[in-house]
Computed example of a mutant assay.
Amino acid sequence: MPALPAGTRNYITPAGYARLRAELLGLIDEERPKVVEVVHWAASNGDRSENGDYLYGKKRLREIDRRIRFLTKRLEAAEVTDPSVHHGRDQVFFGATVRYADGAGQERTISIMGIDEADSRQGQVSWISPIARALLKAREGDVVKLVTPAGVQEIEVLEVSYPAPAPAASTR
């Protein structure tokens, strides 16, 4: 996952935050204790220099601990931003799903997400990506300039949408 640009916030959706937190808790509560148990068992078998369970287990523990540190730092710096607060608006903010057309008329749809949750296979882009930066603050019908290594191209914002707010819980 990319580093956060200096001085920026780590925007993330509530769902993205929940996924990262679940991964962290799973590592701490489930995976790490299992690996510690295997390493302890393997160490009790004597010669550690040729003990694959011991060597692999120690390596895996380092990987788990590195991931735990990374997730902890990212969650501490996270600024949870609910995109549904913009539901019904036509301006592009964090969390928007945007349908746009390039100069050749080719249409694409992307969702602007946090650095730690964007998945390009699902049409999601990080809010710090060039396309997201070009689209942020634009409105439906606006034409914006996208700077790419191939040059500057104009793209037209065709549609902006946000997830609907979750229904309020009953207080009975």
Rank of each mutant, 00 (worst) to 15 (best):
Y162R: 07
E23G: 05
V125A: 13
I68C: 05
Y56S: 15
G52I: 04
G114Y: 09
Q122A: 15
I128A: 10
T13P: 04
E76Y: 09
I68H: 00
S49Y: 06
I112P: 02
I110N: 06
S120G: 01
K58I: 06
I110S: 08
M1L: 07
T148M: 13
E140W: 05
G151C: 08
T81E: 13
E107V: 09
S44V: 06
T13I: 08
T109V: 15
S170Q: 15
S49I: 15
R69N: 15
K34H: 11
L4A: 09
N10H: 11
S49Q: 11
R48V: 14
A43D: 13
P83N: 05
L158D: 03
A43V: 09
R89F: 05
R9L: 14
E23H: 03
A42F: 10
L158V: 03
N51Y: 07
T109I: 11
P2M: 10
V147L: 12
E154Y: 10
L24Q: 00
D116Q: 13
V80A: 09
S170M: 12
K137H: 14
V98Y: 12
D53F: 15
H87R: 00
P5M: 10
V144W: 08
Q124I: 06
V144D: 04
D102E: 00
L136Y: 04
G141T: 12
G26D: 11
A164S: 14
L146H: 06
G46E: 02
N10I: 00
A138T: 03
V80D: 10
R9Q: 14
V85F: 02
P33I: 03
G46A: 06
L27K: 02
P149I: 08
K145Q: 12
I155M: 07
N51H: 05
L25W: 00
Y54P: 06
V39P: 02
N10G: 07
A164K: 15
L27A: 02
I128S: 13
L55A: 07
R74P: 00
D65W: 08
A22D: 14
V39A: 09
P83G: 02
S129T: 00
S129L: 01
A168E: 15
V85R: 02
L24M: 12
T72L: 04
Q106K: 15
R99Y: 01
G52S: 15
E31I: 08
A101Y: 03
